[in-house]
């Protein structure tokens, strides 16, 4: 079983890595030259996702426990959410540059998860915890992609504003497409994160909270509030452009830091 798990893990990581190179290659091609395997990179990304899902299911079966209770599996699911979100969004949109970034993040998360191989202890209230972690994983994964799209928005906006950098570097997605993607992702990701934050408050009431846990809770609530503010202003005051992109990126960075703190805590617990 361990050999099968190891093989699917390696195959998944390798497939993501190849997809990442292909996406980057595509985004750097000039519009006049024929595109390098236009369907190959998304295909490989999808293949990597299937392999990763297989790996995660097999790991859960092998450990005989719910995968969300292990940070190792949770990180894997987080990257899977990101990949699936991108796959859905990239249909009929020119988002190759983001594809490369998503694939690279998937590989990174998988490798980080490998370092945290030990499962966490069983929680007091497994159902509440399962809902809390699942909502956070889905919401966090989707909002991380929103943050990534915002970063690309700011990059492309800077290129277009400065005028002199155009024609160099990768072909970035159009501003309007990126803005639309961020808007949709906020609408989908924020309700999920809201569930995650609310269930998190309940979990805090039933479990002993460490000082590190308090920092994570404050940071995740602040990120949630920031993203909520962006969504409300976008909806009510037609807030578009550079400033909401910065705010969304800030919210996504907050979520990323919370995840990083989990990983660091797990690594420290393992003596790394």
């Amino acid at each position: 079983m361990r050999e099968i798990l190891w093989t699917t893990f390696l195959l998944s990581a390798a497939t993501y890595a190849i997809a990442c190179f292909l996406f980057v290659g595509q985004s750097r091609q000039s519009p006049t030259t024929p595109r390098l395997g236009p369907k190959l990179a998304p295909g490989l990304l999808a293949g990597g996702a299937v392999l990763q899902l297989t790996y995660l299911v097999l790991s859960a079966v092998s450990d005989a426990r719910c995968p969300v209770f292990s940070l190792h599996s949770a990180l894997g699911f987080l990257s899977l959410v990101g990949v699936v979100t991108y796959a859905v969004l990239s249909r009929r949109r020119r988002l190759e540059a983001i594809g490369g970034f998503v694939a690279a993040c998937a590989v990174l998360f998988m490798l980080a998860a490998r370092l945290i191989a030990e499962p966490s202890p069983e929680p007091n209230n497994p159902w509440l915890m399962a809902i809390h972690i699942t909502a956070n994983l889905l919401g966090g994964g989707i909002l991380l992609i929103a943050g990534c799209a915002s970063a690309f928005y700011l990059w492309n906006e800077h290129r277009l504003k400065s005028r002199r950098l155009l024609g160099q570097g990768p072909k970035l997605p159009p501003l309007e497409a990126l803005d639309g993607v961020v808007h949709r992702l906020l609408w989908i990701g924020l309700p999920l994160l809201t569930v995650g934050v609310l269930t998190g408050r309940l979990v805090q009431q039933t479990q002993r909270i460490t000082p590190g846990g308090e920092v994570r809770a404050i940071l995740s609530t602040a990120s949630w509030l920031l993203l909520l503010g962006v969504l409300v202003l976008r909806q009510t005051a037609s807030w578009r452009g550079r400033r909401p992109a910065y705010a969304t990126l800030g919210g996504a960075i907050g979520i990323f830091v919370v995840i990083a703190l989990y990983v660091v805590r797990a690594l420290l617990a393992e003596g790394l």
Binding site: L166, L172, P174, L175, A177
Partner: peptide
């Protein structure tokens, strides 16, 4: 026109 495509999808 190419620049317009960089702004509008």
């Amino acid at each position: 026109v190419d620049l317009a495509r960089e702004i509008f999808s």
